[in-house]
Design a protein around this nucleic acid. Structure first.
Length: 600
RNA sequence: GGACCCGUGGUCUAGCCUGGUUUAUGACGCCGGCCUGUCAAGCCGGAGAUCGCCGGUUCAAAUCCGGUCGGGUCCGCCA
């Protein structure tokens, strides 16, 4: 019995048509006489009726059917009797009168039902094919399909080439830990799986592709997080003869298109752009969640001459004191505040000063160190009123941003200040080119060594070679060089990042020098790319967007595992297949690999 | 490498803090029976758990303690 219709599409206009539907048993209701079977396929659910007096053979088989059996049902579609329509079902006006029924496949009783409460994640992953039958997960798969389709259509229409790049690639020393693949034909040598197609896409620019994109699988063997998997997918883009604005503009329009086509949401263009410095200052983050206000406010000038040593010293040593206002939190207990202090300590803060603005008094552990005027000045600046709680951190700008930024997020969450259904896209631009590596006592590239400096800061880059200032000091020119580096942020998550690349040797040497890499040494590591650049590299730049995370946000899921068909656990195992497993000794011998048992 | 949370029939869950009258709660599912219009069908009955594992404390441990395994979250790491 080959199907003629999908379950979910049967409507009033199909009445009196003879149809065949195929699908899984969603539920059965046996009334002793008449039996109802809800049959489900990808399109939806339709009710099939079996009457023992009219079709005894079909009724007998229907009696046997259990949840998740796979059935074919044939019969006419008819309007449901008056009063028995089910408005909860899209097909609820009609039903299929089951005249014939064929069991395409019986099924074991499933470990969990498609309609049940969500099982533990391990159980879901063990039986992922059942988990994916659940409506939430089936919708996520569908959403992912629609988004990737929309992405492809966008780039095709914009004249991009879709190019595949190798999965078997070359190991590079820095960056993320790599997955290693042994070579059989070249003994004792290994491929690695690509962390990203970064170098390949730049080679494609040298090759003259001009506009490249790929929905690319990437691999990183780093410890997991809720939004990290050992393999993940990027929307990878690179363009030639463009500047930063061209890339931002293209990316924005791509985002607008997927939001429109997949969710029907209109996202206003262009996206707001904040500089890195502004984002850190106002929200304490380089991926700020700007869906709610509660900004960090600098009160250093008010408290620098206060009697409180912690404030004094922080400002005197080049640090700062910043505060934020938590509305309505004056009733916070000592323990509530200790919890926040604990949180802030995770991010380097030594503590939090707080003022609870009660009806009659101000409760604060630092009240005695500050004058009334000083406190009043703080409250005014952060906009605090009676009933509010003011929190302040004094430290280096980095620690203040990190810790108070996290406190801000925590308070935003607790106070339910984050509006539901907001789609807050924005850019963070003008990142510094280098970050100071205190351990190694040198500058490291913030992104990767081919990220171009901001053209306005090239003089700073040169100045860095002729300065008396200590490297790492906040006045060192290299610490001030901005990069042509941009991050795309959605609802407080970094969903993409890219840069304009350096394509000229003279500039590249300046950058390499700053990170303590001489050109010849660099050639050993990136030789093939540098060599390619000597044969006419066009100016180029690009971006990579984290597809899994974008879809997870669109699906309102906390974990990217929910938008990946077959994800791995936090320890990078697959409960469904059992991977990873040992392989045959013979296979290892062929690969010239000896294994060493783990030390106990 | 470090910190924290979780682990009770097939599934979800109560009990754990404050150890003992609980034969370990309830729901879904499963099995049997009844029932001709339900749709999370209903009603009656039944089976199903040595409370992840190991050890300790105690007269007594699902409950307290230590370890271990598994799952999850975060820091480090990672763009």
């Amino acid at each position: 019995m080959k199907r003629t219709h999908h379950c979910g599409e049967l409507q009033a206009e199909n009445i009196d048509e003879e149809v065949v539907v195929n699908g899984w048993v969603q539920s059965t209701r046996d009334h002793g006489g008449v039996i109802f079977i809800d049959l489900r396929d990808r399109s939806g659910i339709v009710q099939c009726v079996f009457n023992p007096e009219i079709q005894p053979d079909a009724h007998t088989i229907a009696q046997e059917a259990r949840n998740e059996w796979v059935l074919a049902v044939r019969g006419p579609v008819r309007r449901r009797p008056e009063g028995t329509e089910n408005l909860k079902l899209d097909t609820g006006l009609v039903e299929v009168v089951g005249q014939r029924i064929e069991v395409l496949n019986a099924a074991k009783t499933p470990p969990f039902g498609v309609d049940d409460a969500e099982p533990e994640e391990l159980t879901r992953l063990r039986y992922r094919y059942l988990d994916l039958r659940r409506p939430r997960m089936a919708n996520n798969l569908k959403l992912r399909h629609e988004v990737t389709k929309s992405v492809r259509e966008f780039f095709y229409a914009e004249g991009f080439y879709e190019v595949e790049t190798p999965m078997l690639w070359k190991s590079t020393p820095e960056g993320a830990r790599e997955f290693v693949v042994p070579s059989r034909l070249v003994p004792e040598s290994f491929f690695v799986l690509p962390q990203s197609p970064q170098l390949c896409k730049q080679l494609l620019m040298v090759a003259g592709v001009e506009k490249y994109f790929q929905i690319a699988r990437c691999f990183r063997d780093e410890d997991s997080r809720a939004d990290r998997q050992p393999e993940f997918t990027q929307i990878d883009v690179e363009m030639s003869f463009v500047d930063q604005d061209d890339i931002l503009d293209t990316t924005e329009r791509m985002c607008a298109q997927i939001m429109k086509q997949s969710l029907g949401v209109d996202v206003p263009l262009p996206f707001p752009r904040y500089t890195y410095a502004e984002a850190r200052a106002r929200w304490g983050s380089d991926k700020p969640d700007t869906r709610f206000a509660m900004e960090l406010v600098d009160v250093s000038d008010i408290v620098q001459n206060s009697g409180f040593k912690v404030f004094q010293n922080a400002v005197a040593s080049g640090g700062q004191v910043k505060a934020l206002n938590a509305p309505g939190c004056a009733s916070y207990t000592r323990k509530d505040i200790d919890d926040l202090i604990g949180l802030s300590k995770q991010f380097g803060a030594k503590g939090i000063a707080s003022w609870a603005l009660g009806e009659s008094e101000i409760k604060s552990q630092v009240a005695k160190f500050l004058t009334k005027e000083q406190m009043q000045g703080i409250f005014e600046r952060v906009g605090a009123q009676t009933g509010d709680l003011v929190l302040a951190v004094a430290d280096t700008p980095e620690v203040v941003a990190e810790s108070l930024g996290r406190i801000r997020l925590e308070m935003g969450k607790r106070l339910e200040m984050i509006p539901d259904g907001a789609w807050d896209f924005h850019w963070v631009v003008d990142f510094p080119l280098f970050g100071w590596n205190d351990k190694e006592h040198r500058y490291d590239p913030m992104h990767h060594p081919f990220c171009a400096p901001n053209p306005d800061d090239i003089q700073l880059l040169k100045d860095g070679y002729n300065t008396d200032t200590e490297p790492g000091h906040r006045d060192h020119p290299w610490g001030k060089v901005r990069a042509t580096l941009y991050d795309l942020v959605l609802n407080g998550y970094e969903i993409g990042g890219g840069s304009i690349r350096t394509h000229r040797r003279d500039l590249q040497e300046l950058v390499f020098g700053a990170i303590g890499l001489d050109f010849d040494h660099a050639k050993e590591r990136f030789g093939f790319l540098l060599e390619a650049f000597e044969y006419g590299a066009p100016p180029h730049g690009g971006i990579a967007c984290g597809l899994d995370r974008i879809i997870a946000i669109m699906a309102r899921s906390d974990s990217i595992r929910d938008v990946i068909a077959f994800p791995k656990t936090a320890t990078f195992t697959c409960p469904l297949s059992g991977a990873p497993t040992p392989v045959d000794r013979k296979a290892l011998d062929e690969l010239h690999i000896a294994t060493v048992p783990m030390a106990v």
